[in-house]
Write a protein that binds this DNA or RNA. Structure first.
Length: 945
RNA sequence: GGGCGAUUAACUCAGCGGUUAGAGUGCCUGCCUUACACGUAGGAGGUCGGGGGUUCGAAUCCCUCAUCGCCCA
């Protein structure tokens, strides 16, 4: 079918009045995939542009925050793709060690009453893989539903073969470089899951508890110290009592010993200004280095012994003494309190509000626990060479990595400045198992003999004796021959270890792949601020370690979505919004537009949440905000319909812009400016500005004005062709500009438009691309036109003034008014060029533009503007008193503006110090207002007579 | 305790040194005007959190207080 045949068949009734998002989504996503538009090609000549997705946890479904982040990434990717870059958006998911294992374990317990120890390591891991398969699919489907243009053929998982290889190589290299060590550290211990958990995986909860005050007798003396604690059972592990060095009450006791009750041990009284606040309580503090973070630091400072009382399951061990060993810590607490009481050493018990750490995963109280852990060294080298933390800080200060908004560079630097070692071991089963084997029986000769020639095995003496052997590939238990058993470390790596490799592991590192060569370093990383430290900093560290180059040029930090009360959205709080629900109700384009509009530079984005009942009976969480996106999309849809139904007889041809009517020159100039500004917005990650600007152009200029201007031209065969060409050109550019934000809607229009006007564009028509997805991003065509813009501004202002007069005087809709515009000079000229528009858009029967305002009909409504007077004769409709009142009000308004302006100009320090330009503007403004004032005053005078 | 941010129209937010402070939603009043009622035309509504300062000029810069949120201890 030829375009002209199609055109004649294009009946407005065939295109629905309302944009149907579902239809477009179903139709075009598959089309894009089939055509391979999302597939990056390392062999292409185009320059690379790459974003790696922050891999969502396979724990559950995506929430609105993911929807925001992925919308913004897709905007960048689609925009750059249109600009001609070879774009790779790398998708994938994160195994999320503890989070996923905890979910599956909980389910196991609920559904089968089994613990992980019942099913065993292998079987549990198998179950988690099954869970992963289900949720990974769900997550990736959600991304597709939103229109994300990821390169699905390259989808990765942090625990897949490719990532595992990268993890192994990295660990091995770190081990060889001496960046990895094993040591005893105080960690947050989850006694239920029996693992260390990271600081960000715990939360505080306040509870009513007690404060016990215990008496500690001073050895060889009658003195007694009073020590208060919320955890009396830990006293069994005390190795000192601390006082403030300047506290006069205890000066004489410093250096003496106390008899630690119930244990028979003697421990020293030490002075420590950091731990002890002399004003708090008795000024004496018990020190339990193995079971409290502050005490631990005190222990290190004062070289105290550390006594670990705890077994991994939360029971006390033999260090607590025979009497308490094997009992749960809560039972020990009761016993200790009873025993102290019967020994007469319990001074008092008070009610106390205790702040207790809980594990995010098991919801049970955390125990500070001294255990063997693996670490990556962050500190500088002994010779002063910058260590990992310093290198990561340098990447930002040297400008190799730019963080937007800039203020987040500070939290990045502050955190890294502490240079704290990174604890990378987790006592879990789901994750990358640490590739270390222990051997306590062998000698270095044995190791040399077995592994001497191998570059993939490295060993080092362990702190506690024996050997730590790191293998890039698994080592057999009998690799050292008979008599020496190799035992693999049972811990797995912290999830962030594999996440930290994401930008290069997904591209094939350690292999030298075409992808790695072309797309590393990646272009932008977009993420939420709460993982700047945990993730972003560590990617920089590992990227620089493995690749000798930071993994991305830009880091963009998006705002956090909260509910209408400023609370974090969460499933448990019941205020979470599911993006899938929003897509269902409003469509993917509406979701994306609204989120882009909300992506301002602030750190929080509030979204009032309300319940919405769907036709199928389900009640979902929704937000009125999404109507903005839906309504805007519908507006675009309808202006496209209007344009297309007027394309009958369309013939593409080059246009001489200089000879086009004012309104065409105006809209093309506005378009140029919009292209320029929108491109700059996206370049600076100003997503909200871009969305706002495009709406202003599309709705506020193109729909509200341009299309109205050309309606009459479209009916006249003489003027029709150029109007069609300009309208088609603008619609074409608009589709391209909006595509990154609203991909489905714009593709739907693009395809329809392609059938009617396959060649389009001004000043020169070109063949439209097969998909807007691969159409070139618009560039300004050098069509600025200040005169056209000034003229149209004149038309708009006068049309609005006349409409206002009509509305205020209640002129019936059907009345054909005959307004007179009194103006002269260039103003009159500009108005004459738009006379017909002023007439049609105000519903006037006739219109007069004259320099002579003397013969005004007695019964008329009048508006005095800065450069013109509008007279609307309204015989029989005029209330003289009301007219006079209106004029007087306008006079008062003018006075209110004139007075401060006069005062300002009378002020010498203003006229002398302010820039000449500002002073001149003020003078012009004043004389304009004074002229206006004089005109209104004359009218008042005449009316009063 | 330290840091970051917010406080502008009823709500959600722009504006970040120079005209009478803007938008969307909501509200009020007309209109189903053959592109769109998810629309259109018009309108009301703000001493820019309080106080001080810098400046010819402050919503905008500085200080301080208050309230709220987040991050790190």
């Amino acid at each position: 079918m030829s375009p002209s045949e199609l055109r004649s068949r294009m009946n407005i009734n065939e295109i629905p009045k309302q944009y149907d998002p579902k239809d477009a989504q179903d139709r075009w996503y598959g089309f894009w995939l089939r055509n391979g538009y999302f597939h990056a090609d390392p062999s292409s000549e185009k320059p690379p542009y790459c974003i790696v997705i922050p891999p969502p946890n396979v724990t559950g479904a995506l929430h609105l925050g993911h929807a925001l982040n992925n919308t913004l990434q897709d905007v960048l990717i689609r925009w750059r793709r249109m600009q001609g870059w070879d774009c790779l958006w790398m998708p994938g998911t994160d195994h999320a060690g503890i989070a996923t294992q905890a979910v599956v374990e909980r389910r196991l317990l609920e559904e089968e009453k089994l613990t992980r120890h019942d099913v065993g390591r292998e079987a549990l891991v198998e179950r988690i893989w099954a869970w992963k398969d289900e949720y990974e699919k769900r997550i990736l489907d959600q991304l597709r539903l939103m229109g994300c243009s990821c390169d699905w053929e390259r989808t990765r998982f942090t625990l897949d073969e490719m990532c595992s290889k990268a993890v192994r190589r990295t660990f091995f290299n770190l081990f060889k470089a001496g960046k990895i060590f094993r040591g005893k550290r105080l960690v947050n211990w989850d006694t239920q899951l029996r693992t260390a958990v990271a600081d960000d995986e715990i939360y505080y909860e306040e509870a009513n508890g007690h404060l016990w005050t215990i008496k500690y007798p001073v050895a060889d003396s009658a003195d007694v110290l009073h020590v208060a604690t919320t955890r009396p059972e830990t006293m069994l592990g005390d190795t000192a009592v601390a006082v403030h060095p300047d506290d006069p009450r205890y000066q004489r006791l410093i250096g003496k010993m106390v008899e630690l009750p119930l244990t028979g041990r003697r421990i020293p009284i030490i002075a420590d200004a950091i731990l002890v606040d002399p004003a708090f309580g008795t000024g004496c503090v018990k020190v339990t280095p193995a079971h409290d973070p502050n005490d631990y630091q005190t222990g290190l400072r004062n070289d105290l012994p550390m006594i670990n009382l705890l077994n991994p399951d939360g029971t006390y061990n033999e260090n607590a003494g025979e009497k308490y060993a094997g009992l749960d810590r809560m039972v020990v607490r009761k016993r200790v309190v009873e025993d102290l009481k019967s020994a007469g050493l319990l001074e008092r018990v008070d009610s106390y509000l205790v702040r207790l750490n809980h594990s995010d995963r098991s919801k049970t109280p955390i125990e500070p626990y001294l255990s063997d852990q693996w670490f990556v060294r962050m500190a500088d080298d002994a010779d002063g060479a910058p260590g990992f933390a310093q290198q990561a800080m340098d990447a930002v200060t040297a400008g190799k990595v730019r963080i937007t908004p800039e203020r987040y560079a500070k939290s990045y630097a502050d955190w890294l400045a502490e240079k704290r070692d990174w604890c990378i071991s987790r006592q879990l089963w789901w994750g990358h198992r640490i590739p270390i084997w222990f051997c306590t029986t062998c000698s270095e000769e044995d190791l040399q003999l077995a592994f001497g020639g191998r570059s993939d095995v490295s060993w080092r003496e362990a702190e506690a004796g024996g050997w730590l052997i790191c293998g890039e590939r698994d080592l057999a238990a009998d690799a050292l021959g008979d008599g020496h058993l190799l035992l693999q470390e049972t811990d797995v790596l912290d999830t962030w270890f594999s996440s930290a490799l994401w930008p290069h592991s997904t591209l094939g590192w350690p292999d030298d792949t075409p992808e790695l060569r072309k797309y590393y370093p990646t272009s932008v990383l977009s993420t939420a601020r709460d993982i700047i430290t945990l993730w972003v900093a560590r990617m920089v560290i590992f990227g620089q370690f493995n690749m000798r180059e930071a993994p991305f040029r830009d880091v963009y930090i998006h705002p956090v979505i909260q509910d209408g009360n400023g609370k974090r959205m969460s499933k448990s709080a019941g205020n979470g919004v599911d993006p899938v629900d929003i897509v269902e109700v409003y469509g993917a384009d509406a979701l994306r537009y609204t989120l882009a509009l909300g992506a301002t530079e602030t750190q929080d984005l509030r979204m009032p949440v309300e319940k919405l009942k769907l036709a199928d009976g389900r009640t979902i969480n929704s937000s009125e905000r999404f109507e903005q996106g839906r309504n805007f999309g519908n507006k675009i849809w309808n202006v496209a319909r209007l344009t297309m139904m007027n394309l009958e007889g369309y013939e593409p041809a080059p246009v001489d812009v200089a000879k086009l009517p004012v309104e065409d020159r105006w809209i093309l100039a506005e378009l140029d400016e919009t292209i320029r500004a929108t491109t700059a917005d996206l370049d600076a990650f100003r997503f909200s500005e871009a969305a706002r600007r495009l709406r202003e152009f599309a709705w506020g200029e193109f729909c509200d004005w341009y299309v109205e201007f050309i309606k009459t031209r479209l009916r006249d065969p003489e003027t029709r062709p150029d109007a069609q060409r300009t309208a088609a050109a603008v619609l074409d550019a608009l589709c391209r500009l909006l595509h990154p934000i609203m991909p489905f809607l714009t593709e739907q229009i693009w395809q329809l438009l392609g059938r009617l006007a396959p060649r389009r564009g001004a000043p020169r028509p070109v063949e439209a691309a097969a998909s807007v997805c691969i159409a070139p991003w618009p560039v300004p065509a050098g069509l600025e036109d200040a005169e056209a813009r000034a003229a149209v501004a004149q038309w708009k202002e006068k049309i609005q003034a006349i409409r206002n007069l009509r509305a205020e005087r209640n002129v019936p809709k059907e009345a054909k008014i005959a307004p007179v515009i009194v103006a002269e000079g260039i103003v009159a000229d500009r108005l004459r060029s738009g006379e017909s528009f002023i007439k049609s858009l105000t519903g006037a029967g006739s219109i007069e533009i004259t320099a002579d305002g003397s013969n005004r009909p007695a019964e008329s409504a009048v508006t005095v503007l800065a450069d013109a007077e509008i007279v609307l004769p309204l015989e029989g409709l005029i209330d003289k008193e009301a007219e006079l009142a209106k004029l007087k009000k306008s006079l008062a308004d003018l006075d209110r503006q004139i007075a401060p302006l006069r005062a300002k100009l009378a002020n010498e320090s203003f006229t002398e110090r302010a820039p000449a330009e500002v002073v001149a503007t003020a003078r012009d403004k004043l004389s304009e207002l004074e002229a206006q004032h004089a005109s209104v005053a004359a009218l008042v005078e005449a009316g009063a007579r």
